[in-house]
């Protein structure tokens, strides 16, 4: 560890200092090596073998070739992108609108904030219970409401429909994760100097102009980060889709994480294929991460 070497030469003489150094860096390093580095390396290694937990015959990139040529792979990739984009953009629109509202400090704004944070903290399973029940064709309140008001003639099975299964999953996702964008944007809004608005008003700018010329530029960075980070997280989301539809009907909600799970744990385990697919997802993430690091330099924030 060259890092420790440098530190030692700089801080050298103090034993206590060295103790602190060890106490802070050893757990950090151990953690990253054991819980992240090793498993990921292990997975990448496994992806090169046929039946890695059994006969373990070296197969080169054969698993990768099998996965990429599987018809389901393209479907799952497209589904992942559609799901990530739609749920992120919807959350953003919702979050932005609401952040602007709450920033106005209307009465009940505090209660609204509490209300917004609750879904975000709920277990995914609870969210899925709620939404599968609400959207259920037989017992669901949404269907009953639509029937009573004559919008539909007979109950509609959202999660069974090849057209509506994905939108239904997206709605449940936005319900849960929508407040992420809200809280980030609210924080940025509250950091804007109120004098700017005051000056604009004095100069006779309309509300819209003030919004366009002051608010939007201040939020631009936050919005881009939300799209990127939230987008990645939604791309990687497993539990909410798995619990709602299991990937069906006819694979219309099968995303890459669902495909990984199916390959690894359903039927006879295919860990070679599953880890190869995980490797592909790892590469995709790495590309996005590089873009993120280059464009935003998030590490500057800690580079003291």
């Amino acid at each position: 560890m060259s890092a420790v070497g440098t530190l030692e030469s700089r801080l050298g003489e103090l034993d206590e200092k060295r103790l602190l150094l060890v106490a802070t860096f050893v757990p950090f390093t151990l953690f990253f090596v054991l819980v992240w580095g090793f498993p990921i390396g292990y997975a990448l290694g496994m992806s090169l073998f046929e039946d890695p937990t059994g006969t373990a015959a070296f197969a080169g990139l054969a698993n990768y070739a099998d996965v990429v040529t599987d018809d389901l792979f393209v479907t799952a990739l497209v589904n992942s992108v559609v799901y990530a984009l739609s749920s992120t953009l919807l959350s953003l629109v919702l979050g932005l609108g609401l952040a602007l509202v709450v920033n106005r400090e209307i009465r009940g704004g505090h209660a609204l904030r509490t209300m917004m944070i609750f879904p975000y903290l709920l277990p995914t399973l609870v969210v899925i219970f709620m939404w599968t029940f609400l959207l259920d064709p037989n017992v669901g309140a949404v269907n009953e409401f639509l029937l009573d008001n004559g919008v539909i003639d007979e109950p509609f099975a959202f999660f069974s429909s090849t057209t509506w299964a994905m939108p239904a999953v997206v709605v449940a996702s936005v319900w849960k994760y929508g407040s992420f964008a809200f809280f980030i944007l609210l924080a940025r809004l509250q950091a804007i100097d109120p004098n700017l608005y005051e000056r604009a008003r004095v100069e006779g700018a309309s509300t819209w102009q003030a919004f366009r010329d002051i608010t939007v530029p201040q939020l631009r960075g936050a919005i881009l980060i939300i799209i990127l980070v939230r987008g990645i997280w939604m791309f990687n989301k497993f539990d909410i889709i798995y619990l709602a539809t299991g990937g069906g009907p006819l694979d219309v909600t099968t995303t890459l994480p669902i495909m990984v799970y199916e390959m690894a744990f359903q039927g006879t385990p295919d860990f070679g294929g599953a880890t190869a697919l995980a490797g592909i997802m790892f590469l995709l993430l790495a590309v996005v991460a590089v873009v993120y690091f280059v464009a935003f330099k998030p590490e500057r924030e800690v580079a003291t």
């Binding site: 990253f32 819980v35 992240w36 498993p39 990921i40 292990y42 997975a43 496994m46 890695p52 937990t53 980070v229 990645i232 997280w233 791309f235 990687n236 497993f238 994480p257 990984v260 799970y261 690894a264 860990f271 599953a274 880890t275 995980a278 997802m281 790892f282 993430l285 790495a286 996005v288 991460a289």
Partner: peptide
């Protein structure tokens, strides 16, 4: 990077 990672992708090797 770790904080953007997919739990399911980590879950497979951890399982093994």
């Amino acid at each position: 990077f770790a904080y953007m990672f997919s739990p399911i992708v980590l879950a497979i090797p951890l399982y093994v």
